[in-house]
């Protein structure tokens, strides 16, 4: 009974609020817009709870790893120490510009992430090197269009051979956009369908249920 209630309450809420939030998109009347706006605003404080959830979950997992001395538990110690340090300096001296927190962010996290991002340049090259092979007719077409688009992006090529730049522009704007549109329409339909299945309770994954 308790089990069934525990499942029914969220499901009924999901059904009512799902239909309401879909309908409010078309109804500008304040009687509908005011409660809708209120619900959207509730999301802000809820976010704070979610952050706490993540924080405790992360900490608990790493504490367990350290206590059990699981494989590579040293990493967990580093994680926990960095976490504690950031929380401590943030709470004591604040997070505004010029504080230790903001300096740590600027001089540690920022360069680390920028480094990760710059790896993309290398990975794009190695992925392109492996993928662009003229194995089949389709792959050859893909390869040729890739070459045209890459050439079109180089300013010197644009000056020396304008038709290549124009072809590159054409490929990006028309065949590429047409394909994207088709995929976007499909994705949108899939998304609406997932939303409807969720609202109607056909798909219960969002409630953590196996279907």
């Amino acid at each position: 009974m308790k089990e069934r209630l525990g499942y029914r309450v969220p499901f009924v809420l999901l059904l009512i609020l799902g239909i309401f939030m879909a309908a409010q998109y078309y109804i500008p009347h304040p009687m509908v817009q005011k409660p809708a706006q209120m619900m959207i605003q509730w999301k802000q404080p809820l976010n704070a709870f979610i952050i706490f959830l993540a924080l405790f979950g992360l900490a608990a997992m790493h504490v367990r790893k350290v206590i059990r001395k699981q494989r590579r538990w040293g990493y967990s110690v580093i994680t926990l120490t960095s976490m504690a340090l950031m929380i401590f300096v943030g709470m004591v001296w604040g997070t505004r510009h010029g504080t230790i927190f903001s300096d740590l962010f600027k001089h540690v996290i920022t360069p680390i992430e920028a480094t990760m991002f710059s790896l993309l340049a290398f990975f794009v090259a190695s992925a392109a090197f492996r993928a662009f092979r003229a194995r089949t007719v389709g792959a050859t077409v893909l390869l040729l269009s890739a070459v045209v688009v890459i050439l079109g992006l180089i300013p010197v090529v644009e000056d020396l051979c304008p038709p290549i730049a124009r072809a590159s522009d054409f490929l990006l704007k028309y065949p590429n956009t047409a394909a994207k549109r088709a995929i976007m329409i499909g994705v949108a339909l899939g998304a609406i369908s997932v939303a409807m299945k969720t609202i109607l309770g056909i798909d219960k994954t969002i409630l953590g249920r196996d279907r």
Binding site: A127, A131, I183, V187, G190, S193, D203
Partner: peptide, 16 residues
């Protein structure tokens, strides 16, 4: 380019 098999867009929703 990197996956052996890919579900393109809507196929992901259909597969689910």
């Amino acid at each position: 380019t990197t996956c052996d098999k890919t579900m393109i867009g809507e196929e992901l929703f259909a597969a689910a």
